[in-house]
Design a protein around this nucleic acid. Structure first.
Lengths: 152, 152
DNA sequence: CTTGATGCAAAAATTTTGCAATTAA
DNA sequence: TTAATTGCAAAATTTTTGCATCAAG
């Protein structure tokens, strides 16, 4: 895994997120703050195991992480991704970065790049109509060899 | 899950597949034939559990199915998909149906429709170049409510 | 015969759950 | 005060592995 910078966003979104938690009569606990903090600082999909490892300092139980991720996904604050390996990865949904976007993942070192492009809307609409489906969405991820790994 | 027809292809691809197995000094055993038969008759991604259940008659061990799918994927005879639920699904790669295609899956009843459309090649190339990636591929699946489930 | 494959059972890995104790509101 | 949350341990799943036996080539 490559090192990569995780610049904190200009404005933290945590106040807004905690507000929404409170709104649902959820509590702002240590573990939850730590998880949200981490996800904000690391704007790429993370597995529960990675989150657990990263939070080794504060000692947050793995079960708590599983439960938190379920909750955050249910509340729409986190989006769950599946890349090539049946492991769920979680990424914070922020106002800066739209909830819907895609990733380009290095098959060697797992580096992740966020992608602007999306599947053409008209084409998707056509697919939905031709098959009579409603409320169509898609999952789309790219895989390849990143620059650094091409030389190895 | 909706019932769906599984018309056998005009020409069975099994002889070719078994030939390739033999070529790799693999053996054509009962379980393997049953699995290939099943995958050919059911041209949609199936989970190992589904395969195991479908083969309840011949009594094929689940461990054997796991091992077989690993082998078949490694040999390129089967393609592995991940839909929305972190469960691996396997589909036979045939000459009729190209190995690369996508699916439209009903979020309610799990019906699967095969999709012709693909992510635009030029756009993908652009993404690869802009990020300096090589050997880029993608996974792309669509989700929505199928006609039957819209009335429920 | 020889080597790969199978079934079975055990082990490993992953995810969920029950519950008493804790803590935010 | 009280309702949600946590940690811990146990349970439930899912996947892999060791090994003696079996069978395809």
């Amino acid at each position: 895994m490559k090192t990569c910078h995780h610049p904190r966003p200009e404005v933290s979104e945590l106040p807004e997120l905690t507000r929404r938690l409170r709104e649902q009569s959820r509590k702002i606990t240590g573990p939850r703050q730590a998880i949200l903090d981490l996800l904000q600082a690391h704007p790429h999909p993370m597995t529960n195991k990675e989150i657990h490892a990263a939070l080794a300092g504060e000692g947050c139980d793995l079960a708590t992480i599983y439960r938190s991720m379920h909750l955050l996904v249910r509340m729409g604050m986190v989006k769950r991704y599946y890349f090539a390996d049946r492991v769920a990865r979680f990424e914070l949904v922020t106002q800066n970065r739209s909830g819907h976007h895609h990733h380009l993942v290095c098959t060697q070192c797992a580096e992740v790049v966020e992608i602007e492009e999306c599947f053409p809307t008209e084409l998707e609409k056509k697919i939905a109509e031709r098959n009579g489906f409603k409320n169509i969405t898609h999952s789309l991820e790219f895989f390849g060899l990143c620059p650094a790994c091409q030389t190895d």
